[in-house]
Design a binder for these strands. Structure first.
Length: 295
DNA sequence: GGCATCCTGACC
DNA sequence: GGTCAGGATGCC
């Protein structure tokens, strides 16, 4: 579940608590497939002795920047980023209490101040990678632009949508097109922009793309202000739920009134994903394209 | 594009 | 007991 606003909230709340701390031991690691591209033992030994210098985010990836705490010279191939993807149900917390007994906690890393970095994931879809600078650059290059960056312009979005006849919702969910959006925020964005999720991307006018660009940023900013959305599992690094679920316009509001026009919110399926729309505010066909009664 | 797959828990 | 869920990937 965590999408851009949730990962951003986690990164911000984690940074103050773990920056400058050193990873001293792996206390629990009971799900080998959690770690990609590294054998478990190599993964654990590579972490020990590394200091966290920053906590950041790229798309839905949570990134811990690491640097060797001792004065040893770092070889250029040394991994210097610990990257987490939380997928559906993952969460990361800093805990002072022993979480080893929790069956859904799959990775615990002890820090030098006695606290623990705890990764929990009931559905086991989350993944962890230890990346070199080059590998991080490759991962980042495969993702679309950061929607909240000032460098993300309407023209960028327009270029990425032009000549694509796929449904606009599918493309907004595609991390290669734009990074960080998931099912919830795509539905919220398309409602705010007044665009039907089944519209072919190349049917959008430049004005609509401009409105969509604004709506993406508006929705994400608002969600971050509300510390993300909690449907079930999501918590920030201190265990607090988000508040943005109380501000949803369409997501999960099937049968309730559209906040703009009052018609009932409808649930359809797009790209195998539950999709919430107001069919009045988000028309699939232009009104002028509807045949007149006498035809 | 659609569909299965990786998993568990919640809900009907 | 069956169905569904916030994500991503890989295979027709």
């Amino acid at each position: 579940m965590p999408e851009l606003p949730e990962v951003e909230t986690i990164a911000r709340s984690l940074a103050a608590r773990v920056r400058g701390k050193t990873l001293v031991a792996v206390e629990k690691f009971d799900w080998e497939r959690l770690v990609e591209h590294h054998p478990p033992y190599a993964f654990c030994t590579a972490l020990i002795g590394q200091q966290i210098t920053a906590v950041g985010r790229r798309g839905k990836w949570l990134l811990f920047s690491l640097t060797p705490s001792s004065a040893q010279i770092a070889p250029p191939q040394r991994p210097d980023t610990l990257a987490f993807h939380l997928r559906m149900s993952g969460s990361i917390m800093v805990c002072d209490t022993d979480q080893r007994g929790d069956p859904h906690t799959h990775l615990i890393i002890a820090l030098d101040d006695g606290s623990n970095l705890v990764f929990r994931d009931p559905r086991k879809f989350g993944r962890v990678r230890l990346l070199t600078a080059h590998e991080l650059a490759m991962l980042s290059a495969a993702l679309g632009p950061e929607p909240l960056d000032d460098t993300f312009r309407v023209e960028d979005l327009a270029r990425r949508l032009e000549r694509r006849h796929a449904r606009i919702k599918s493309l907004l969910l595609d991390q290669r097109v734009i990074a960080g959006l998931g099912n919830i925020y795509v539905d919220e964005t398309l409602w705010l922009a007044g665009i039907h999720p089944l519209r072919p991307a190349n049917s959008l006018t430049y004005e609509e793309i401009s409105h969509l660009h604004w709506a993406i940023r508006e929705v994400l900013h608002q969600a971050i202000t509300n510390a993300g959305s909690t449907l079930r599992d999501y918590r920030d690094s201190q265990g607090y739920p988000g508040r943005h679920q109380h501000d949803f316009s369409v997501y999960g509001r099937t049968g309730l009134s559209c906040m703009r026009c009052g018609s009932p919110i409808v649930r359809i399926v797009v790209a195998q994903r539950g999709t919430h729309i107001c069919s009045v505010c988000q028309p699939l066909h232009l009104a002028s394209a509807i045949p007149s009664p006498d035809q």
